[in-house]
Design a protein around this nucleic acid. Structure first.
Length: 560
RNA sequence: GUCCCAGUAGCUCAGCUGGAUAGAGCAACAGCCUUCUAAGCUGUGGGUCGCAGGUUCGAAUCCUGCCUGGGACGCCA
């Protein structure tokens, strides 16, 4: 039952100048409960009918009659209607019981493919807090897309190619020691990387050496390749630990290097299509006034990441036939993606229209960007481990007999870290704060998980069983919950359209808050005729909380 | 210099396809566990919605200018 459309249909009978669709768009959800469930503002009608909004509202309110609404009243130029709670409750509850975890799914995609470029850490650099953002946002978006009927392909486009490796090789050859790197690869490689940039400030010629070594790498010289391969292996091992802790996996791990043998074709194709020009010794595609030109090859003939991204996009289209393709990459790379999409358009690929850069703000420290080159990074793995430890302490204190303590601690600890990242709009910069990240109270992941665990516990204690004809009345205590439960499907589509997981995070918080309020006010397990009805409501809340958390990439333990 | 993003309570943020009384969490203070997990609930205080114009019956929300912070602007990714 779509109450908004029903309300619009009733209004349309009275307002012939407006279509049902238009009216539906004008209908709002009032902020305060006393204002009813749906509201129609009459201000814009005042001019047409030459009557005051209040008078119009008065006139219309009396004509709103339907079994779906119990009341319609005119207030301050609005018509406020009150939904038939018993009917609405029955519909929502039945839908959730019937669909379970499928509740809220849609099929707007009709099984078409969406590729999502996410995480994409750089080899030989530690997995920093900054990469966490891309990883968890991308992962959640892929889960949301799946819920909307897409076949998703998560691609970890690992940064395993580029001039930086030339630099790293130079640093290793000058100052590196094999045993040290073997013992503690990431840390030692980072030290070398940091040292390189420090020394390059005084001796800029080091940068030239770095470029030379990258050229050797691109030419496939053995020494360069061997070192590169080694650095890569060590880094991948390190990343795997983080992904395991987070519970995130990928459908493709093709990094930049994978496209090495595909870039020449791109350059050729650009040339054939007459897009390539030489400028200051480099090969470029000019993109007009609005954008800087896209660099395809440097004057020494080596490639740039734009070249690799072009090759990757073409490869992905060929391999997956995507209709949509998301790049979950920091906002500072906005121009790069504009260029990338513009070049694809010039190449005549219509599918460039399905490509979207999903930017996000930075992790700041002391209002400054955390710079890898200066060694100012916080290691994600350490933060996650800390969160897990803290979660375990909490369990030991509050629920010492919990069976699978370790696993629940992992779920809650990572839940805190992931939720902390996803609860706010992704474009906001985040000031890194360990205390905020490890908070388990208030608007946090553990708060939602805790609420879910409470619901689970009630169902167990109350011996809840699915009844074929669930009855949950829409009494006032239930109503806020019913309304929230009904909103879940539209929250998901909205989150997908905006590429915004925080919509789901905020929703799940709101539902948890309402449930905790209900929990405090109503004795759910009281032995009276309505007990099963209350438990049914609890069951649906549990289902939706669990599903909401799942869409964020967060587990919902039964107990904690 | 040009372009992009942000500026709402002490702090972190919601609200921004314009609407009726601007909301949470944290922090502070005061309550609530002999009854369903207190990782919870209830209450109190706290706001020139960066500033100035404009559009509108109506602006935190849209437009313009300015201020502040951050970012990006051809051989890094």
């Amino acid at each position: 039952m779509d109450y908004q459309m029903e309300f619009a249909a009733l209004l349309e009978k009275e307002l012939h100048e407006h279509s049902q669709q238009d009216i539906s768009k004008m209908i709002e959800k009032p902020r305060y409960d006393q204002q009813g469930d749906l509201a129609f503002p009459c201000f814009t009608l005042a001019k047409i009918y030459r009557k005051s909004p209040a008078a119009i509202a008065e006139g219309l309110a009396g004509r709103i009659q339907s079994s779906h609404f119990v009341k319609a009243e005119a207030v301050n130029g609005y018509i406020n209607v009150f939904i038939n709670k018993t009917e609405a409750a029955a519909n929502v509850i039945a839908a959730i019981l019937r669909e379970g975890g499928e509740y809220g799914k849609s099929d707007i995609a009709k099984g078409s493919v969406i590729t999502i470029d996410l995480s994409s850490p750089n080899i030989a650099k530690p997995f920093s807090m900054g990469h966490l953002r891309s990883t968890v946002i991308g992962n959640s978006l892929s889960l949301i897309a799946e819920k909307c009927g897409y076949r998703t392909v998560k691609i970890n486009h690992i940064g395993d190619w580029g001039t930086q490796f030339g630099k790293l090789i130079v640093a290793y050859k000058k100052w590196g020691e094999e045993e040290k790197v073997r013992a503690n690869p990431i840390k030692e490689l980072l030290n070398l990387y940091v040292r390189f940039h420090k020394e390059a400030e005084i001796h800029p010629e080091l940068n030239d050496e770095g470029r030379e070594w990258f050229k050797k790498l691109e030419n496939g010289e053995e020494e360069a390749l061997e070192l590169w391969h080694w650095f890569k292996e060590e880094s991948l091992k390190e990343f795997a630990k983080v992904y395991e802790l987070l519970g995130i996996s990928f459908n493709s791990n093709h990094g930049e290097a994978f496209y090495n043998d595909k870039m020449e074709q791109v350059a050729d194709e650009l040339k054939e299509k007459g897009l390539l020009q030489e400028s200051e010794g480099a090969q470029i595609v000019p993109l007009g006034e609005d954008m800087p030109p896209c660099l395809i090859k440097k004057k020494d003939g080596t490639t740039l990441y734009a070249t690799r991204d072009l090759a990757a996009a073409i490869y992905r289209q060929k391999t997956y036939g995507f209709t949509k393709s998301l790049y979950v990459v920091g906002a500072e790379q906005t121009v790069h993606f504009k260029q990338l999409f513009a070049v694809l358009e010039k190449m005549g690929y219509p599918w460039h229209k399905g490509m979207t850069h999903v930017p996000f703000g930075m992790m700041l420290k002391g209002n400054k960007k955390m710079s890898t080159r200066k060694g100012k990074v916080v290691l994600l793995e350490e933060v996650i481990k800390e969160a897990i430890m803290l979660a375990e302490e909490n369990i030991t204190e509050k629920n010492p007999d919990l069976a699978n303590k370790k696993e629940v601690a992992r779920q809650v600890g990572t839940g805190a870290v992931i939720f902390h990242d996803l609860k706010n709009y992704r474009m906001n910069d985040i000031e890194f704060s360990l205390t905020d990240m490890l908070r388990f109270e208030g608007e946090t992941g553990p708060y939602v998980q805790y609420t879910h665990a409470r619901a689970s516990s009630l169902l167990k204690k109350g011996n809840f069983t699915h009844t074929p004809e669930p009855f949950v009345n829409g009494e006032d205590a239930n109503w806020p919950l019913i309304k929230s439960l009904a909103a879940f499907p539209e929250v998901i589509t909205h989150a997908f359209e905006k590429n915004d997981p925080s919509q789901v995070a905020k929703y799940v918080l709101e539902l948890a808050k309402k449930f905790n309020k209900y929990y405090a006010e109503v004795r759910i397990l009281a032995d009276d005729p309505c007990k099963q009805s209350r438990l049914t409501l609890v069951a649906t809340v549990k289902t939706v909380l669990e599903e909401g958390l799942r869409l964020l990439g967060i587990a919902a333990p039964e107990e904690m």
